[in-house]
């Protein structure tokens, strides 16, 4: 803590303790706030699309039911085929996966019923109009590249590349500055982890060169 910070906290404690008779800072704050309010009104639109309460429509409505059904089938199949060691007590290792598999399939059926019932409501368009696949694919690509390169080029470069790609996906376009930030983040993590926690991250070919 710097001396500046301590001064601030002491002052705050004082105002809280005395019930705050000093009006000046709040007036200032109120003005700041008013100036900023105009910029934040846009958040109201974002609230309108809350996935947890929205109904699934269009072809994408079947993604989760299909996923649940596939998981259920795998769990049920596993439950029936797992070989229990001969001395195992009953219920064996397959009982629970089998039960959960059946329940998953039942849930998938319930979702299907809900989907069919909702099919004729709304205007038939998908409720996922907001979904932007480009940045998602970019982030995923960054992750795949990172996983593929990590043990060859080392944490420093692979981590920096991951940071840079994700930043790009989120709209950063100051390429050089982004690269510098990415490298310093990655380096800070590597140094912090090996010094502070004794954890070794892969050095990659840099380790051999240096």
């Amino acid at each position: 803590m710097t001396s500046d910070d301590t001064r601030v906290s002491a002052e705050a404690a004082e105002t809280a303790g005395t019930g705050g008779t000093d009006e000046a800072p709040t007036v200032e704050a109120a003005e700041d706030l008013r100036a900023d309010v105009d910029q934040t009104t846009g958040t109201d639109e974002a609230e309108a699309l809350d996935p947890e309460t929205s109904v699934w429509r269009g072809p994408t409505a079947w993604v989760i039911p299909a996923l649940v059904a596939v998981l259920g089938a795998v769990a049920l199949w596993g439950g029936l085929t797992i070989e229990a060691p001969p001395n195992a007590t009953r219920p064996g290792p397959g009982a629970f996966p089998g039960t959960v598999g059946v329940l998953l399939l039942v849930t998938a059926v319930c979702m299907t019923v809900v989907n069919l019932r909702n099919r004729n409501t709304g205007d038939g368009t998908s409720t996922l109009g907001w979904f932007e696949s480009r940045p998602v694919l970019l982030v995923l690509a960054g992750l795949v590249v990172h996983v593929a390169l990590l043990e060859f080029v080392g944490w420093l470069l692979a981590g920096a590349l991951l940071f840079w790609i994700v930043a790009y996906a989120f709209g950063a376009r100051a390429y050089l500055r982004d690269a510098i930030v990415a490298l310093s983040m990655s380096a800070a993590v590597q140094v912090g982890f090996s010094l502070g926690l004794g954890l070794s991250l892969p050095g990659g070919f840099l380790e051999m060169v240096l």
Partner: peptide
């Protein structure tokens, strides 16, 4: 459509 956290400032809480 993600929430845009434009800058808001505030005074010290009291």
């Amino acid at each position: 459509s993600a929430p845009n956290f434009a800058a808001i400032r505030t005074g010290r809480p009291w």
